[in-house]
């Protein structure tokens, strides 16, 4: 029987799934991903985690619980750094331990350190990871190559304008890439952590709501890494947080881009990094005067409140466009 490896559909799943999934599958393992977020998954997460952590981490607990009885091992990489001389939020690093102490009856956890702070290549990480399953170095090397290739292809698809679930469907389910929906609707850049904006339950279908109202949606992940970094480098101080850099760099780019009509920043309540990026972005927006909406999500967010804000934001864009300056509404 093939060994089943569980991967929670949470946190950096949206960035790295192809890397992990292709690696495991190339080694002959079966990958099981937790089901899309539902109220039941979220509530399980809330009940089993402390209320002193942010919602995305609490939700990730729910996804671990969703996998708990369905897999042989759980893969929770201990993410320390995903880019040279940069860190990510310490919650990612602590997550495997929080899970270990917070949930009983878990299958074995596989949680090797992922740390690119001083290195460029993640190869040593994959060697350590692969050793849990095989002694065959060549097989590990080949699986690593395939994983890196899949990840590169994934990033390419995102840069073409796809969102993670669409890109994953192309990679793993053979769905055709599809044409980018054209149309003359306004374009809005949605800036926020991937685990907030791409999780339809948590974002209250933000992306599909926008699409349904004829808005073309963009995110940080549709931009090449180099461009995002170039933009972020314009900050007076280097940001050592990889995710914050991505969001700021993307916001800067979209603020200058004439094809983008408005910006929505999505933040988690009680997330320190988000309040910093939100503040930096909103200051810059004020200087440039593009329609801007800051949506803060928490477990109590009412859908009605989000909808009202979104409608007002869309009206704001629409009325701005159609009214000559100086005329009253």
């Amino acid at each position: 029987m093939t060994l089943k490896v569980g991967i929670p559909r949470a946190l950096l799943y949206y960035y790295y799934l192809p890397l992990w999934r292709t690696f495991f599958e190339a080694l002959g393992l079966e990958v099981v991903i937790s089901r899309p977020t539902t109220k039941t998954i979220l509530e399980a997460g809330l009940q089993n985690s402390g209320d002193d952590v942010c919602l995305p981490v609490r939700l990730a607990f729910g996804h671990v619980l969703d996998l708990k009885d369905r897999v042989d091992v759980l893969f929770l990489p201990r993410l320390v750094s995903i880019a040279r001389r940069e860190y990510i939020c310490p919650k990612f690093l602590g997550f495997p331990d929080m899970v270990r102490h917070g949930i009983s009856g878990l299958p074995p956890l596989i949680d090797p350190n992922f740390n690119l702070y001083r290195k460029d290549s993640p190869y040593p990480f994959f060697v350590a990871l692969g050793r849990n399953f095989t002694g065959n170095r060549l097989a590990i090397y080949l699986a690593y190559r395939r994983a890196m290739h899949a990840q590169a292809r994934y990033v390419q698809l995102l840069e073409k304008g796809l969102f993670p679930e669409q890109a994953l469907a192309v990679l793993y389910r053979g769905v055709a890439e599809g044409q980018e929906p054209g149309g003359g609707g306004p374009a809005v850049a949605v800036i926020g952590h991937p685990y907030n904006i791409y999780d339809p339950y948590i974002s209250m279908n933000l992306l599909s709501r926008l699409a349904r109202s004829g808005v073309r949606v963009r995110s940080a992940d549709n931009l090449p890494e180099t461009l995002v970094r170039e933009q972020a480098a314009r900050l007076p101080k280097h940001l050592f947080w990889s995710l914050g850099q991505r969001m700021i760099g993307a916001a800067w780019h979209y603020l200058q881009s004439p094809d983008v009509d408005g910006i929505i920043h999505v933040a988690s309540f009680a997330c320190g990094p988000d309040s910093l990026t939100g503040e930096l972005i909103s200051r810059e927006v004020r200087r440039r005067g593009k329609p801007f909406l800051n949506l803060t999500l928490d477990e109590h967010s009412a859908e009605a409140g989000v909808v009202t804000r979104l409608e007002a934001f869309l009206d704001m864009m629409e009325r701005r466009q159609f009214l000559p300056a100086g005329e009253s509404v």
Partner: peptide, 13 residues
């Protein structure tokens, strides 16, 4: 500004 909404915030909590 110029008769058009440019920013807003709501408190419902």
């Amino acid at each position: 500004r110029n008769g058009v909404v440019t920013d807003f915030a709501m408190n419902t909590v």
